[in-house]
Write a protein that binds this DNA or RNA. Structure first.
Length: 272
DNA sequence: ACGAGCGCCTGTCGGC
DNA sequence: TGCCGACAGGCGCTCG
């Protein structure tokens, strides 16, 4: 599930708290529970539990779809892949069915990594920049310019859907937002990247930022049971709207497969 | 360089 | 009601 807007929402929940859940800033980790071993990418479970103990939460960050929990000495890097969220609650609460990793704080609260499909991964590392070095530019950064984006498009001869989903090209976009961005930009998902003009690239650049910012404002997208709390699903124009009229021209939205992913687009607004 | 196929997992939904 | 296949927000790997 979580793409950039959902992960950014998680970051803000952890930093600011929400509803009954408090902020985790300043809390000290007393211990951890690894409930699904493969969740921990590095280091070993023994080293992880030993090293994480006694560290406190200093800052919360995000890079692409990765949630960064900066501790006293190390950084916890969380990636959810296809499902999940983080939950802050008292340690006396019953364990959720899909909890994979728990961090128990000294004040009695805990942070749970909830990840139904078990694809998610967690790293504990002193050097998160090295871990995330292969990621492409952060789309909402100030130094991500239309010129830089156009240069990326010109440097490849790839179908646009592939390129936008590739985290090495640009970080944070997933299947939902990519479909919405391409529809808004009137670009067919199979359009080759180097066929776009600078004007098209600039429009696409604007729409990437607009869609992501609107997603964040709405605390992300909640399509099914995996994550509740977002509202962007009400603003989707093509994703999961197969057969419904395009809000711009009325043509039924079509679903095809591109990059092994369900891809929704308007055959009239987004000609190849 | 590019893209197809597959594995990893749990769950929902629709058709029969 | 139950069974079965298709599908789901991601990504690393192999192979052509």
């Amino acid at each position: 599930m979580p793409e950039l807007p959902e992960v950014e929402s998680f970051r803000r929940f952890l930093a600011q708290g929400r509803d009954e859940s408090p902020s985790i800033l300043g809390k000290t980790i007393q211990g951890g529970d690894l409930l699904w071993e493969r969740t921990l990418a590095a280091p070993s479970p023994e080293e992880f539990l030993e090293r994480v103990r006694g560290q406190s939460v200093e800052e919360l960050g995000r890079r692409g779809k990765h949630l960064l929990i900066h501790l006293s000495r190390d950084t916890l890097v969380l990636h959810f892949r296809m499902s999940g969220e983080v939950i802050v609650e008292a340690q006396t609460e019953p364990l959720g069915k899909h909890y994979r990793l728990l961090l128990n704080f000294s004040d009695g609260d805990r942070l749970a990594f909830n990840n139904p499909r078990k694809f998610g991964r967690v790293w504990l590392t002193p050097d998160p920049d090295a871990l995330l070095a292969d990621l492409g530019p952060e789309p909402l950064d100030e130094d991500f310019s239309p010129q830089a984006f156009y240069a990326i498009l010109q440097n490849h001869h790839r179908q646009m859907k592939y390129l936008l989903l590739d985290q090495k090209t640009i970080a944070g976009l997933g299947n939902i937002y990519t479909d919405e961005i391409l529809h808004l930009s009137k670009i067919h998902p199979r359009t080759k990247s180097d066929a776009l003009s600078f004007e098209q690239a600039k429009l696409l650049w604007e729409n990437i930022r607009h869609v992501l910012r609107t997603g964040i404002k709405n605390q992300g997208t909640s399509i099914d049971w995996m994550y509740r709390g977002g509202n962007y699903q009400d603003l989707l124009k093509v994703y999961k709207h197969t057969g419904e009229p395009c809000p711009r021209c009325g043509t039924p939205i079509e679903r095809i497969t591109v990059a092994q992913r369900g891809t929704h687009y308007c055959p009239t607004c987004q000609p190849l």
